[in-house]
Design a protein around this nucleic acid. Sequence first.
DNA 1: CGCATTTGACCGGCGC
DNA 2: GCGCCGGTCAAATGCG
Length: 303
Amino acid sequence: MSADDRDLYFHDDFFYAERDLSLLSGEMPSGAAIGTLQPLSPIMSFDDYLKLDAFDPGELASPELVADGAVNSTNNLTPSTGCGGGTSPASPRSSVPSSSTEAAGEEDTSRRKKDHLKQEKEEIEKDQKLQSKADNDKSKTLSKPKKRGEKRRREPRFAFMTKSEVDHLEDGYRWRKYGQKAVKNSPFPRCLYCTDLHQISYYRCTSQTCLVKKTVERSSQDPAIVVTTYEGKHTHHSPAPARGSTQSLASPPTASTSFCHHHHLMHQPNLQCFLQSPLQGFQFSGCDLLQDILPSFTQKTQP
DNA sequence: CGCATTTGACCGGCGC
DNA sequence: GCGCCGGTCAAATGCG
């Protein structure tokens, strides 16, 4: 990335941390964390945040606020504050609590209530599941012993946005990819000029006792931005180092990048006024073009 | 050889 | 009730 590119994305008043950079992607020459969610302390880095013992999304904010797009209430896009203007509030390391994934959720309160009610039941089921899983261990003798009927537990989630060339950012923990899907949630379900789908990757912490999951997707606004959504809480203190190197943690830039050249070319110039607010989500400054291109983001409704 | 990734199939929730 | 879609599983494959 060139200096010009940096200028393109980072305004004077938009804070980004080089430290996060190096942490998040060792091989990234000049990539930058465009913003990391910072619910606790504006000083704490992405890395610190993740490793924090007290790291508990459920405690960072009430479930109402954190769980499943709850932040939506504060995720309204404020129409603009002038490009450079920067009213980028407060916390420098601003974040996008409710990224495309979250925002798209748009779960209503009833649904969250449901989830809440189910939570206890599901937790029991989950424990049982884990138990049986441990029992079965490697002896998966049965072809499909998995009981799929059980409902999933919805952990509080939160998202980080990071400008990175790699999809999977190194956060100190080991992750195992267990799925990848093309999502339609994106404002660009399909590129106008090609048929590439906006894809999302699903990762799980490799620690057997840790149930933390995360999803990684390219920002719908800027393919150069990686939106990482964490779900759950690490139950272990020492993140296991990647085997060998960071290779297992960070896939090559081209490995599973979901954006197409068109996106990249088309939208980059429009993101120069891209701002973030920790509590208010995105802020677009004088980016009419961007709003035209991202109607679903600037407004909830999509044509 | 062991672990990670890929990828198609499958499942469940939700909206219409 | 049906279809869509997000999320997960698991066999196949790749890689160190």
